[in-house]
Design a protein around this nucleic acid. Structure first.
Lengths: 165, 165
DNA sequence: TATTGTTATACTCTATAACTATA
DNA sequence: TATAGTTATAGAGTATAACAATA
């Protein structure tokens, strides 16, 4: 301040957040969480799908055909959000919707063979995003990070619907 | 599947995401990152401020009066986003904007005494959010988590403007 | 009357572009 | 002509509410 030359030394005007933020775990988590979100959205983008689509396919691959409400609840999505995702997946032949004969209000959703193939492609993308994001960590550190996040996730599970994919 | 009773056993239809997601560190990070974001936004809400305001005040508390461009760059915000934040802070007397006499296009932004007081209040809120979010971790685990996030943050620093506060 | 899937609407966030005043 | 701050606009993402078919 005071008499310091106001001419900015061109290079060293480094954009650095305040210590107070850098020292906050919560802040780092928010920040890095959104980096992860951006990076993975970008990585999926060329396929025309998103992490949301991947989540739906992964669920259907593990579970028997389910109703839309069950899918939405399992993934923490809003039911109306799910409709659009399923429309897109169905259009491209990755899933099938058929009416539940025992309750004609319901749709039973299931994975097609093409859906399984695409799921494998999306897994490859997820893997490469992981590799990039966690490059600075060695395998043991990744394990540790994962374990800590699982602890946190289990504890905060009981939250409302969220929908971050 | 097959002949399994389609009548859902009322209680155990637990909304559980697929293993594939639960086992993905990237997914957990996205998810928990947005939980953090929601929780802290909610905690700040009664004050009429947001984590963004807190970030600006914290920066000004550490640095001499800065121009808006420098603040925006340091926090990774868009310059136009910052304008509104500063308007709100100024209205409530927490910061001051005055023209830089040596370049009348610039505003030099500084913290007022009232701003410092409010900053302290916001720190208290941040602390209580932290306590709640990281309750399931013991002090050593928190340290570990923080250290891992710092590693990641340093590595991915060179990213564009983000603005997750 | 309640529920499933659907459609429509609104609201928040953020990114982009256009404008002014100074340089 | 370029830059700092400002204003305005538009786009994603998500949440809420209303609706038709079925129970």
């Amino acid at each position: 301040m005071t008499t310091t030359d106001p001419q900015v030394p061109p290079v060293l005007a480094l954009a650095r957040p305040p210590k107070e933020l850098r020292s906050s775990t919560a802040h780092l988590l928010k920040r890095f969480g959104s980096v992860v979100k951006e990076r993975s959205a970008a990585a999926y983008e060329p396929t025309g799908f998103s992490p949301y689509h991947h989540a739906v396919l992964a669920l259907l691959d593990e579970e028997p055909p389910e109703t839309q409400a069950m899918i939405a609840d399992a993934l923490g999505y809003d039911r109306s959000h799910l409709v659009g995702l399923l429309d897109e997946l169905e259009e491209r032949g990755l899933i099938e919707r058929r009416r539940d004969p025992s309750d004609r209000r319901r749709h039973l959703v299931s994975l097609t063979a093409e859906g399984k193939r695409t799921l494998k492609r999306l897994r490859t993308i997820a893997k490469s995003v992981d590799a990039e994001l966690f490059a600075p960590l060695d395998p043991e550190q990744r394990e540790t990070l994962h374990a800590l996040l699982v602890l946190l996730a289990n504890h905060h599970e009981s939250r409302r619907h969220a929908g971050t994919s």
